[in-house]
């Protein structure tokens, strides 16, 4: 049985301009330890779909099952990382942020801080355990956010364009780091992005979505060996293929 089943999920909402289909009939499955990317232009419903999986939004049709159990509301089987740096609690240190989920579980102070420190080591920030978020750069804050979402050991990590607000160089570093984290932890990750190269670099499989209404257009497995070389021919071929699905490929490539 697959770990995650997205079964004919739809979400429609009313605007002054009329009814809008944010997501229409999205269906796919996910195996454990898989890295899945949702790719598409803005408005294609990829973030909406992620928020439905996270349980922040309730679908108007269909359902999502994790480990065979239907999702309703958010739960500790899923960790979430958002795009906005402001997601960290400014009144807590990096360590305090990472330990939050464990604290909610009722774990004792010593134990949870030990685990939190391990998580910070995973994202190479153990030296900054006692710094407050505003003393950290954007990239460091996002690494804390990743550690925070992993700390209470959820089955799935959901990431909503976590590196989109970073500069290009930091972004490359972060992608490498995330690939390492994934390799070490073997987490199941759903990662939303509009950046095709990022998807090809990270994913086992890419789900391409298109807007109006938001639908799944294609599923593309990426079988490249890791670590991947973004300048290799195969990498660029995959990138081209994705861009074609998104209707952005050049006519020559088609």
């Amino acid at each position: 049985m697959p770990l995650i089943e997205v079964d004919d999920v739809s979400l429609a909402y009313d605007t002054p301009a009329g009814r809008v289909q944010g997501v229409l009939g999205a269906t796919f499955n996910m195996e454990e330890s898989e890295f899945l990317c949702l790719v598409g232009p803005s408005g294609c419903g990829k973030s909406t779909l992620l928020n439905i999986i996270a349980g922040f939004l309730t679908p108007t049709g269909g359902e999502i099952r994790i480990g065979g159990k239907k999702v309703s509301g958010h739960g500790m089987d899923r960790g979430v990382v958002f795009q906005d740096f402001a997601q960290l609690f400014p009144w807590r240190t990096a360590l305090g942020n990472v330990a939050f989920g464990l604290e909610m579980k009722g774990m004792g102070k010593e134990e949870r801080e030990e685990i939190a420190l391990q998580q910070l080591k995973l994202v190479k920030l153990e030296k900054f355990a006692n710094s407050y978020p505003h003393h950290l750069s954007g990239g460091m804050q996002q690494r804390v956010a990743i550690a925070r979402a992993l700390a209470y050991n959820p089955a799935v990590l959901l990431m909503d364009e976590p590196f989109a607000a970073l500069d290009a160089m930091t972004r490359d570093d972060m992608q490498r780091l995330l690939a390492d984290v994934w390799k070490t932890t073997g987490k199941t990750i759903i990662y939303v992005t509009h950046n095709v190269a990022e998807a090809v670099y990270l994913a086992d499989r890419v789900i391409v979505m298109t807007p109006h209404p938001g639908t799944v257009k294609a599923e593309i497995p990426i079988m490249l060996p890791r670590p991947r070389d973004p300048l290799s021919l195969e990498f660029l071929e995959h990138q081209k293929q994705l861009l074609n699905y998104l209707g952005q490929g050049t006519s020559k490539a088609a």
Binding site: G79, A86, G101, R148
Partner: peptide, 20 residues
């Protein structure tokens, strides 16, 4: 965003209030 993040980490109403 803080409410969402805390909710995702399993904070109940009571903890949400005092800790967030």
């Amino acid at each position: 965003l803080w409410l969402r993040a805390a909710g995702a980490m399993g904070a109940d109403e009571h903890k949400l209030f005092w800790k967030v």
